[in-house]
Nucleic acid binder design. Structure first.
Lengths: 348, 348
DNA sequence: CTTTAGCACTCCTTTTCCAAGAGTGCTAAA
DNA sequence: TTTAGCACTCTTGGAAAAGGAGTGCTAAAG
């Protein structure tokens, strides 16, 4: 793969940027004009032929303009694309959209997804990578009345879940500490599957009334811990696809949209780098094969990372999307950072 | 509005059902055939002319077949439609799809939505009507370490929320009961807005370290209670719209899909009857004007009702959708009923 | 009075054809 | 190596034509 001449590279850049803007194949004349008339369209045509030969450009048919191939986009993204600086106003806007009370994680993700999507005008997705291997750290049972009590569980990653438990059998309040003791003694620090096993084991050694409550508590806890392992992904703005000319065809749109709705889990989740761009066929998933994905990761704390990504046509404004996504990623990192700060700024 | 002759009614019925199946205007010949050849197509034509005159049918243009007008659908739904019995297999399937562990309410709704949508092949939405006027019934503060404690709140509708609170100032464990006492004494049984007011009032009378914690707790509690008042609505299967001929037009599809995504709260939520059918222009919301909505309500317990609905083209198979929806509504009612049963089947 | 066959007529849909336009690839000259 | 010129290709849009489905009306039959 030989080096491309400077002029070829510039031409490729113009083609990509023009095509991104107009969604129409771009012709030699337009390119010549855009390059300031320093060369004629005929020269451009020669170069275009070369670039096509080399696989950077494609032609829908003879006598149409050229459009970038995935390989062309790739070169553009890797070498030609200029880092886009966000305007102050836009940075502002990103930060404002993150300035919400940190309610439930879920709501935050939804918000962030919507904000990204509306900013870049493509569908977006957000994931808070959750740690697998989360275990229970401590249990607490609070009496309510003789038939109900509240289970509180604190997890190894310092989150809290609680649930009202209805007891089949009346239980004296005095018995609660005993059950709580069992929970704390045998069910902390272990994986959900192991919890079920230990529950079996405890069956014989425990008084029946206590065991009934114990098993309710354990199965709720196991459910929660397991759910904490599954990453939660939310998507937003999927219907924006319909505004794009490449998805005017209802079948294409349907394929991608139902993928976004039903198989979010399979959206690219590369954690290696700050930002990853997957162009068309570089995607493994069939449904994404003629779409592109730009995804950035952000820091959640605890060395954990979340993801925030955008799905669009291969003809995507990569520079703009990338800039905005990293803006968001920074914002989110800061947000989570602040959350963690208080307990750390101790040495005053 | 005079009575329609039996034959006219039958013809209308045939037109609706044919049109629902094929999405093509139906002609006199087809109708004659479907009615068993007892009358000729010419007769049918006369009747069709009458029905059109009366506003039950429409013609896209002079020499096309007829299709039902909203008024026609309405008559069909009110009088002509036969209650469709679900096959055993289908009832089975509905119940199976609801046979999941009652995890979080949210997950249940999502599941139910998907199940409905896949069964009727139209987009669906589900809402668990939440009670407004929920208040806190009891608070509990559990110590974790000197900087953290857990707030547990039990609400007036017997649900439990909890949250880890990080304290800006170190607080001796002995002080927690005092704060908990304040919470239970002044912040139970009142609306969120009132809570903030009382928090103000408490500012002066409380030790600063305690107040800091108190205000964190109160604002979290107020947020939760307020969120409990907002009904949560989930949609599913929106992309199915794209499979329907009436939404091949990307603009139309976009309008409705973004409505479903961004304005779910404005989907019809009539609570009056078991089931409600809104046909085309009967919908108030602009975006639903050329769609139809079928919505059923189910019993959550506490005299509260939830909703489960389907959105589709005016040309919807009302009979099939209605049957399946009421199947689901029953299933959900039973599900919630069972949940409530244990504490009630007391007198054994 | 109702039903039916027959037929002219309307209007949509599809196909076909043509002209225009955009853009290329090649050649030959600068 | 670049450029002008030109023939050629292929799409696009529109007009015209052919085909078809279905109606509405009329007149006759039940």
């Amino acid at each position: 793969m030989a080096e491309l001449s400077d002029r070829k590279r510039q031409i490729l850049k113009v083609v990509v940027e023009d095509y991104v803007r107009t969604a129409e194949p771009v012709g030699s004349k337009a390119i010549a004009a855009e390059m300031g008339g320093s060369v004629s369209s005929a020269t451009i045509r020669n170069e275009l032929a070369d670039l096509t030969e080399l696989g950077y450009l494609e032609q829908p048919h003879t006598s149409a303009g050229r459009m970038p191939s995935p390989k062309g986009y790739r070169l553009y993204v890797n070498e030609l694309m200029e880092e886009q600086r966000l305007s102050l106003a836009e940075t502002e806007r990103i930060n404002r959209s993150l300035q919400l009370k940190m309610e439930e994680l879920n709501r935050l993700l939804t918000q962030a997804g919507r904000a990204v999507s509306s900013l870049v005008r493509y569908p977006a997705y957000v994931a808070a990578a959750r740690k697998s291997g989360v275990t229970a750290r401590r249990f607490e049972l609070l009496p309510v009345d003789e038939r109900n009590c509240i289970l509180v569980m604190m997890t190894s990653d310092s989150r809290v879940k609680s649930q009202l438990l209805r007891m089949q059998l009346k239980l004296e309040p005095e018995q609660l500490p005993a059950v709580a003791g069992l929970l704390n003694g045998r069910f902390t620090g272990v994986a959900p599957e192991e919890m079920s096993r230990r529950l079996m084991a405890a069956a014989e050694q425990t008084a029946p009334q206590q065991f009934l409550l114990l098993s309710q508590a354990v199965s709720y806890a196991a459910d929660c811990l397991e759910a904490a392992g599954r990453p939660e992904i939310v998507t937003a703005g999927a219907s924006r696809l319909l505004k794009l000319p490449e998805f005017r065809d209802a079948d294409k749109a349907h394929e991608l949209m139902s993928f976004l709705a039903d198989s979010k889990e399979e959206l690219p989740q590369p954690m290696h780098r700050e930002m990853e761009i997957l162009i068309g066929p570089e995607n493994v998933k069939e449904a994404l094969r003629d779409a592109s994905v730009v995804v950035a990761s952000y820091d959640i704390g605890d060395g954990m990372r979340g993801l925030i990504g955008v799905v669009g046509p291969t003809r995507m404004d990569y520079a703009a999307v990338a800039a905005r996504l990293s803006g968001f990623a920074e914002g989110l990192t800061r947000l989570f950072g602040n959350q963690e700060l208080p307990p750390k700024e101790e040495p005053k």
